Amino acid sequence: MTNYTLEEKESFTVLGIGTELKSSYTDYAGIAKEKADFWTEVTQDGGLDKLKAVATNDYIFVVNEAVNNKMMHYAGVMTEASLPEASRVIQFPKGEYLVVKGEAETDEALSNMVTGIAFGQVLPEAKDFAYVGGPNTSVIMGQRNGLVFGEMWIPVVRK
């Protein structure tokens, strides 16, 4: 099985600018294109820079959450501040999290890689814990040796 850890995390809040993903949840190519288009837009229109300006750390959160039966996708930061551009304050619960670490050439490649490993390999093979919903996030933590590094955080419960 792929390298992963289970870590206890305190509750935390992410302020996000988001979009509704309209593709079917099984249309991976459609979802990937919608996410890429969203990140291009939020980067070019200055939304991401505004979020970074109020962040309590340097992490960028790539959040997926089901809200009112809609698939939502957010660019976010950890902060107690608010912004008029922000569309949601996302509450992550205190508890155990599946953590998958990774490195890739770009933020998008890292997010796609750790998401794929977590949902495509670790969770389907997990015998003693499960994801039961709630927001999940890949966390872009920084750069080293020319690569972007970060983690996927998914709240889980013991079976």
Rank of each mutant, 00 (worst) to 15 (best):
N3D: 15
N3A: 15
L6G: 10
E7L: 00
E8C: 02
K9I: 00
S11A: 15
S11W: 05
S11I: 13
V14P: 01
V14S: 02
L15E: 09
I17D: 13
G18Q: 09
G18P: 03
E20T: 15
E20P: 07
E20C: 15
E20F: 13
L21F: 02
Y25A: 09
T26R: 09
D27T: 11
D27R: 09
Y28P: 02
Y28L: 13
Y28W: 04
Y28I: 13
A29W: 00
G30F: 05
A32P: 11
E34T: 04
E34L: 05
E34V: 06
K35S: 07
K35A: 13
F38C: 09
W39E: 14
W39S: 11
T40Y: 08
T40H: 12
E41F: 00
V42C: 11
V42R: 15
T43L: 05
T43F: 04
Q44E: 12
Q44R: 13
D45N: 14
G46F: 02
G47Y: 06
G47H: 05
L48D: 04
L48G: 00
K50S: 10
L51V: 07
L51F: 07
A53I: 08
A55L: 11
A55C: 06
I60G: 03
F61S: 02
N69K: 12
K70C: 01
K70Y: 02
M71A: 09
M71L: 10
M71Y: 04
M72C: 13
M72S: 12
H73R: 06
Y74F: 15
Y74D: 14
A75Y: 02
G76I: 02
G76K: 03
T79S: 15
E80P: 01
A81G: 10
L83I: 06
P84S: 14
E85P: 06
E85M: 12
E85N: 11
A86Q: 13
S87Q: 12
R88Y: 08
F92S: 09
P93K: 04
K94H: 11
K94D: 08
K94P: 03
G95Y: 04
E96M: 05
Y97V: 01
Y97F: 06
L98W: 08
V99S: 10
K101G: 11
E105A: 05
E105T: 02
T106C: 00
A109D: 08
S111Q: 13
S111P: 12
G116Y: 08
G116D: 05
G116H: 10
I117T: 04
A118R: 04
F119V: 04
G120Y: 12
Q121S: 14
L123W: 07
E125N: 10
A126W: 07
K127M: 12
D128H: 07
F129R: 05
F129D: 10
Y131L: 04
V132E: 12
G134M: 06
G134R: 03
P135A: 00
S138A: 13
S138D: 12
V139M: 01
I140Y: 08
Q143G: 06
R144V: 01
N145F: 00
G146T: 03
G146M: 03
G146Q: 04
L147G: 00
L147C: 04
F149Y: 10
G150D: 02
E151F: 00
E151L: 00
M152Y: 07
I154Y: 05
P155L: 01
V156K: 01
V156I: 15
V157D: 02
V157M: 03
